[in-house]
């Protein structure tokens, strides 16, 4: 396993190649943590690995030394079950010691299967109950306007999560209040727990739906680091008058063939030692290729 990556500081010029490697580093860390814990959410985390990598290492205005800095950008993980993908990043950025990662999933750990803002530093809001965090992010974006802060609030939501009605209450209110400082990112991996959204409860046409609710909608490939970097760099100013929805088309289980082939099976689980080693080999080979 590659624990040898250089720590990438926020605001440091980070290349697209670095960010690609970072996403795969995250996948390796997730495999390692779930292996130790015995159970975890793989495939929903792998679908947003590039998004998390680009946000934390390139886009967001953060100061890990001052976690409660009022003007920091906020990140809310609406799809809280991907928390295992948040922990290695927050630790790497210095919010808590790397040793804490080894406690993941055990009683007393600050790091759970879903994020708890009272337990883990660097978590802007707890999540786990799907459909809440876009509303919470809306409140944070409103607070920024009231205080005259120009920070942004990013909320990463799942495409299954938007089946929750509360998401659309928030979508309605965000455009009513013209909150251009609110950015929703939909990790559109096409699955809910029991199967494909297209079969079980269609959410399409997703872009038209958010547009009809008054949002500025951008659709892109959520694994295309280049496109993510460019899109985030070109976001309308936080003072603009329409909330932004990035629909990131992604693949559940991305980056590990076994999971790409059976994404639903790997929503929650634990790889056997053999599967784990194969997955690590596959990811490591790709990282070397990208770095070469």
């Amino acid at each position: 396993m590659t624990a040898t990556l250089t720590r990438l500081e926020r605001d440091r010029p980070t290349t697209v190649q670095d960010l690609r490697v970072r996403a795969d580093w995250l996948r390796l860390e997730v495999i390692r943590m779930i292996d130790k814990a015995g159970l975890g959410h793989y495939s929903s985390t792998f679908s947003c690995a590039e998004i998390l990598s680009v946000l934390y290492y390139r886009v967001m205005r953060l100061d890990p030394a001052t976690p409660d800095w009022a003007d920091r950008d906020r990140f809310l993980l609406g799809k809280g079950h991907a928390a295992v993908g948040l922990w290695p990043i927050l630790s790497d950025l210095g919010y808590f010691p790397r040793e804490d990662l080894d406690t993941f999933g055990y009683i007393g750990s600050p790091l759970g299967d879903h994020p708890d803002m009272r337990k883990a530093a660097g978590v802007d809001f707890s999540s786990g109950s799907l459909g809440h965090n876009l509303s919470v992010g809306l409140g944070i974006a409103m607070a920024a306007r009231l205080r005259g802060s120009d920070h942004r609030t990013f909320v990463l939501i799942g495409d299954g999560e938007i089946q929750e009605g509360q998401v659309w209450e928030a979508a309605m209110a965000a455009s009513h209040y013209e909150l251009g400082n609110l950015v929703a990112i939909v990790d559109a991996n096409g699955f809910i727990g029991s199967g494909p959204t297209s079969e079980l409860m269609s959410i399409e046409p997703l872009a038209d739906r958010f547009a009809a609710f008054g949002w500025h909608v951008i659709e892109l490939d959520g694994h295309d680091v280049d496109a993510l970097v460019t899109t985030f760099a070109d976001l309308p100013a936080p003072g603009s008058d329409r909330p932004v929805c990035l629909i990131a088309r992604t693949q559940k289980g991305r980056g590990v063939s076994l999971m790409e082939e059976a994404p639903r099976a790997w929503h929650v689980g634990c790889l056997t030692p053999e599967q784990r080693d194969d997955a690590i080999a596959e990811i490591s080979a790709r990282m070397q290729e990208v770095s070469a």
Partner: peptide, 19 residues
């Protein structure tokens, strides 16, 4: 926030998280 109580509760949480 209109007739949308669940959103209202969670929005309030966001405002509280910001002080």
């Amino acid at each position: 926030l209109g007739i949308a109580e669940t959103n209202t509760i969670s929005v309030a949480a966001g405002l509280a998280a910001s002080g």
